[in-house]
Design a protein around this nucleic acid. Structure first.
Lengths: 246, 246
DNA sequence: AACTATTTGTTCGTATGTATG
DNA sequence: GCATACATACGAACAAATAGT
């Protein structure tokens, strides 16, 4: 018997989305360029505007394009960022499929390694960035959210410095997740870390002392871990998303 | 001056999607239950069917619901799975925002720890699952894809056993990513690992010998790492997605 | 400052496909 | 086989945003 294929066809919008995605990935449309307008795509794909729109919106939520209105508007291809990774983890956390304790545990494995790698990759430029980040951590802030974000600035720079973009993606995601949790709870519940711990990490990295950087990061995470776990209940209550364990 | 808020309002479909998402997360709709039909939602949100549809489709791609046709059809709430995490990483990889070498490096950090934790959490049930997975690794297969998937069965069970769902999500994602890369390239290019390496890992885990499990996993990844890196070029060529470095 | 053209955003009406009973 | 209830798809229109004149 010849080899037949199942004929079940996917939704039209998914088919279109797949083709557009492939075109972008294979370089037919580069970052900054514009996809054809909805009307044009309606012609080329011989489909209605609605399904073309659905396809483009899918590309948008996947992070491949941004959509603008007006003349010169349309779907503009952009560099794929780590945002979608973050969003999926955040949803999983909201849905109770993971807890703060689990989050901290992964950070305790990953971040010391990130610090170690960063220490081995220090350059003039990145050293400057790291120092600048440390400065902002002790700077002024206008509200709780800004304070939280500023006080974790070095984490993001270290993630970028470590030289492995996958590490960076995960580390950045975990940092941002932690930030959002802290931001959401009542400020008076938050006990901020001792700034000297961040100082020690940065110093070790700038000294290119990889083991010391990892150790300092490890100590830091141990000291803040328990405090963060305690925020979870407050966080879930505030957002009304029920307890963990889904 | 009083504190005003920007009035820029999001798309109607995004607003609807947000409300539905919140309703699901706060437990108004539990897994298995059905969201109101498109028509009903049209009434309650006072919006057109198209935007309601867009919202529901958004929830579908986010993994919150599955959509079925026919009577008794509609949007059914489901447990949020790790699929979306995987998809976002896969897209990043396709877009050249990360390489196989970086993938392997993270696996080398994470998987030994997973094995260690699994060894400390062995139960009668999970031991049985792990043995069963090891069996399938040497079993029969009908094609390349099935062979690849079956030969990495223990990785997925270990990820599940480790007891941290965040570790599980990441480990599972990395394993699946590796699988898809191997599946995509020409079978004759693939050099499969020595099965005794998996045997050693499983044995250590079942013996509850955590350090040995971690060490065995570490050795295993070191031995397969280089072979996998070599597959990258072939993979990208085959899918026509251009070289790395985006 | 006002007008115009272009492109996305939204709506309505309608028709078709699909699966249950 | 038929009715039902639902998603899927199409086409034509109008609304809103925005860049250029």
């Amino acid at each position: 018997m010849p080899k037949f294929n199942p004929v079940k066809q996917p939704r039209v919008s998914d088919e279109i989305m797949g083709q557009l995605k492939k075109a972008i990935l294979s370089g037919n449309y580069r970052a900054g360029e514009k996809l054809p307008s909805e009307r044009e795509l309606t012609d080329t794909f011989q489909a209605s505007r609605v399904v073309v729109r659905e396809a483009i919106r899918g590309l948008e939520t996947a992070g491949f394009v941004t959509i603008r209105q007006g003349p010169r508007g349309g779907a503009y291809v952009q560099q794929l960022a780590f945002d979608r990774v973050y969003e999926s983890f955040f949803d999983l956390f909201l849905a109770g499929r993971m807890s703060v304790a689990e989050l901290i545990q992964l950070r305790q494995l990953l971040q010391p390694e990130v610090a170690r790698m960063a220490a081995m990759n220090v350059t003039k430029v990145s050293a400057k960035q790291l120092k600048a980040a440390l400065e902002t951590e002790t700077g002024r802030y206008r509200n709780h959210a800004e304070k939280v974000r500023s006080r974790m600035a070095t984490d993001l720079v270290l993630a970028q410095m470590c030289g492995n973009r996958l590490y960076q993606a995960v580390a950045e995601t975990l940092t941002r997740l932690t930030q959002e949790i802290i931001i959401a709870v009542k400020p008076e519940k938050v006990v901020f870390h001792d700034q000297r711990e961040h100082d020690a990490i940065v110093k070790a990295v700038l000294d290119k002392d990889a083991p010391a950087a990892a150790a300092a990061m490890s100590r830091h995470l141990n000291s803040v871990g328990n405090g963060l776990v305690k925020l979870e209940e407050d966080f879930r209550h505030k957002l009304g998303v029920g307890a963990a364990e889904g």
